[in-house]
Nucleic acid binder design. Structure first.
Length: 345
DNA sequence: AGAACACCTTAGCTTACCTCA
DNA sequence: GCTGAGGTAAGCTAAGGTGTT
């Protein structure tokens, strides 16, 4: 059974199943993707498609199965129009402006740089500030922006030094690592970058780090954690979907069991049933229920070759128990067919 | 061999909730 | 009843460690 969950472009078929050897044992072999209006898989969005595994990526164009995949369209988490080729937060702007905090928010922002006022305050408070980088909060960001005249390039650089040395101090001390909290602006920028590239090449990493006044390692870690979060969410979605599939199959199994019981009851109620050379059972194509047809008797009496379902010869004629282990699905094969041919006149 | 990554884990921080004075 | 302080658990997330590719 193929299970494929599509969150987007239905024109991209699922083909991961054709490459099952490549799937690891950990891989659910589950395929999800978000298409229209979202970052393409190749661009590497996260929950909005990143988790469509490597196998799916590799095999997108190799699907050969004739079974139509079961596709489920879900509403996206955070629709981000992909139409704009170069958004304001794209990498393209990483190098176009490095003027720091004097810039308007959202462009060329440098959220780790604080004005001297804030830095002085923090110096006074010393270790009382539990979250050093939380000093780069939006409040202080705004403060810095509003009082940008205070700062100027030099102060910005001083703050950048202070911020970086704070981290390096922690590293050097090796005592307790301080929790660095990225500001909303930093996170938003990283998020936007992640939507475009869920992995970074060294050049992009350096550019991002420089732009956000972070260490490349921090950017790298952020992307690693972001991918992990994406995968986790994806796994949750997959599990939920598989759960629903399981419920559906259970219900189907229940229905078939009931149907089987009906057939057994039918058989026991007809003493000569098993003595007949063959029995034709037809299934209604619409309701998928087995219909008891008069063609059985007709076929038996007229020796018309039965078409599809034939009670196997290995069935226990005495007990009336059908061989349940003969086939994987049904004790006998049922084929959807047209109404039984009328016996020849 | 080294880089990049996935995965697991740890630990700092925030938030919500509760209790109590 | 309302309020603020203190404690606690849960969740989030940056970062470290390790194995794999």
């Amino acid at each position: 059974m193929e299970l494929a969950l599509s969150l987007g472009d239905p024109s991209k078929p699922f083909s991961f199943l054709d490459k099952t050897p490549k799937l690891s044992n950990k891989d659910l072999g589950f395929c999800m993707g978000l298409g229209n209006g979202f970052i393409s898989q190749e661009k590497g969005d996260a929950f909005e498609g990143e988790s469509r595994g490597e196998a799916a990526k590799d095999a997108d164009d190799k699907r050969v199965s004739s079974d139509p995949p079961l596709q489920l369209d879900l509403l996206p988490f955070s629709p981000v129009p992909r139409a704009q080729p170069s958004s304001q937060l794209s990498f393209l702007c990483l190098t176009d402006n490095q003027t720091g905090s004097s810039e308007a928010p959202g462009r060329g922002l440098d959220v780790n740089r604080l004005p001297l006022v804030a830095a002085a305050d923090e110096a006074e408070e010393g270790a009382a500030l539990s979250s050093p980088n939380s000093a780069v909060s939006s409040f202080q960001m705004d403060f810095g922006l509003r009082h940008g005249n205070n700062g100027g390039k030099r102060e910005v650089e001083v703050e950048a030094e202070r911020a970086s040395s704070r981290v390096s101090d922690d590293d050097e001390n090796g005592s307790t690592r301080k929790k660095l909290r990225l500001s909303k602006e930093q996170s938003a920028f990283l998020e936007e970058s992640f939507k475009e590239h869920n992995t970074l090449n060294p050049k992009q990493k350096l550019a991002l780090a420089k732009h956000l006044n972070l260490r490349p390692r921090q950017v790298e870690v952020w992307f690693q954690n972001r991918r992990a979060r994406t995968k986790l969410k994806q796994t949750e979605v997959d599990c939920e979907y598989l759960k629903r599939c399981c419920e559906t199959l259970t219900e189907e199994n229940r229905r078939l069991q009931k149907e089987l019981q009906e057939l057994r009851a039918l058989k026991t109620s007809q003493p000569f049933y098993m003595q007949l050379p063959a029995t034709t059972l037809t299934m209604c194509p619409s309701c998928e229920r087995v219909a008891t047809t008069s063609t059985t008797a007709a076929a038996a009496t007229t020796n018309v070759p039965t078409a599809s379902a034939t009670v196997g010869s290995n069935s226990d004629a005495k007990t009336g128990v059908l061989p349940l282990t003969k086939t994987r699905g049904y004790p006998f094969s049922l084929q959807t067919r047209d109404p039984a041919p009328s016996p020849p006149a």
